[in-house]
Amino acid sequence: MQAAVLTEFGAPLTVRETPDPVAGGGEVVVEVLAAPVPPYAEEVFSGRRNYPLEPPVVPGIGGVGRVVHVGPDATRLRVGDLVWCDCTVRSRDDALDPDITLQGWSSRGDGGARLARHLHDGSFAELMRVPTENVYPLPADAEDDPARWSSLGVYVIPYGGLLAGGLEAGETLLVSGATGNLGSAAVATALAMGAGHVITPGRNRAALGLLADRFGPRVRPVELTGDEDTDRAAMTAAAEGPIDMVIDLLPPAAPSSVARTAAMTVRQYGRVVLMGGVGMLGGTDFALPYPWIMRNSVTVRGQWMYPRPANVGMIRLIASRALDLDPERLRTFPLDAVNDAVEYAAAHGGPFDRTVLTPAAA
């Protein structure tokens, strides 16, 4: 098969012939029809994000594909099924504290690194080997546009955070980092889940306007100034009532003060979910006042990626059109143009911009 290989950090990906993957027990081989290329992929491949990939490696964070082989323990998947392949792989030998790897992308700790060495390669290839439990059948209408359905991989991340925070219908949510690729996905997902209003702070006027135009008065844009007191007051005023929950999806380059400003708008007994990259590249640590958390009974929790059932929930939201993928701005690239795709994704990382590789069509 053909695959795009990261031979070393800082080098362009090389498209070359590699051995076809072979599924063992508990695994599936999938023909990759559409693999999302995140806007920060160039930062990963250059080494600037310091992700624990071990070159040579086929990168990629899941995608849409067609099953070509199933292991003997699969009871419902069939060859030919159109499926979503989730990159979040958990070890099977500890139910309470599993090791985790993002297949073809990243991992956590020594156990996650060992898991990554077993499931080394991701979706930037014609074929991919995936754990059986990470493969999810898609509805029939996904056949019409697999590339658009690969946006599922963007939306399911903030969906995991919204589930972790227990977002309820009618509540007011503040999305810190709302004008980014993941933040804007959080806005759309929260509204699909029934949020009453979503506060969307940011500095990019055009992106704030796009969110307001797409979703109407349920979205409350706030243009940030950089002054903590001024910005916190503006966000609180935009809510016109209590802010029930804050989700942070800011990128690693964002200062921790921006995350703190947003978090401290939440009401008494409110929830704050941290999913972004603040502090990953150094800088000032994220700090919240102990007395403020304690006296206001605020829940603060981290969430890395999402639980397995979130994949099923997201497929249902899209299939029902509660979450509409039609407005996505989609650009596809064949596998042999993978470096062009990475460059394009870096320049088009705004709200609802999607860059997708189509390996099987190469």
Rank of each mutant, 00 (worst) to 15 (best):
residue 80 G to M: 15
residue 53 L to N: 04
residue 136 Y to M: 02
residue 141 D to V: 01
residue 42 E to L: 10
residue 63 G to H: 03
residue 78 R to D: 13
residue 157 I to T: 14
residue 61 I to S: 12
residue 63 G to E: 02
residue 98 P to M: 08
residue 68 V to I: 04
residue 112 G to I: 11
residue 103 Q to V: 04
residue 88 T to M: 10
residue 69 H to T: 08
residue 72 P to N: 08
residue 48 R to M: 08
residue 55 P to D: 02
residue 129 R to V: 12
residue 60 G to P: 05
residue 111 G to H: 06
residue 133 E to P: 04
residue 36 P to S: 13
residue 69 H to A: 14
residue 103 Q to H: 02
residue 139 P to H: 13
residue 115 L to E: 06
residue 122 G to D: 07
residue 66 R to H: 07
residue 150 S to L: 00
residue 121 D to W: 05
residue 54 E to S: 01
residue 145 D to N: 01
residue 147 A to W: 00
residue 163 L to H: 11
residue 55 P to T: 00
residue 123 S to Y: 03
residue 118 H to I: 05
residue 79 V to N: 14
residue 58 V to N: 00
residue 124 F to R: 05
residue 146 P to R: 01
residue 107 S to F: 10
residue 70 V to C: 11
residue 125 A to S: 15
residue 160 G to F: 11
residue 141 D to T: 01
residue 160 G to Q: 07
residue 90 R to Q: 11
residue 120 H to W: 02
residue 158 P to F: 07
residue 55 P to Y: 01
residue 101 T to I: 06
residue 75 T to C: 10
residue 87 C to S: 15
residue 157 I to Q: 11
residue 103 Q to I: 04
residue 138 L to Q: 05
residue 49 R to P: 06
residue 158 P to M: 06
residue 107 S to Y: 09
residue 159 Y to L: 15
residue 155 Y to E: 00
residue 113 A to T: 11
residue 150 S to W: 00
residue 47 G to C: 09
residue 141 D to L: 01
residue 121 D to Q: 07
residue 152 L to V: 01
residue 117 R to Y: 03
residue 92 R to L: 15
residue 77 L to N: 11
residue 130 V to S: 03
residue 168 E to D: 04
residue 99 D to P: 01
residue 51 Y to T: 09
residue 122 G to N: 08
residue 168 E to Q: 12
residue 124 F to S: 05
residue 36 P to V: 10
residue 52 P to I: 04
residue 37 V to K: 09
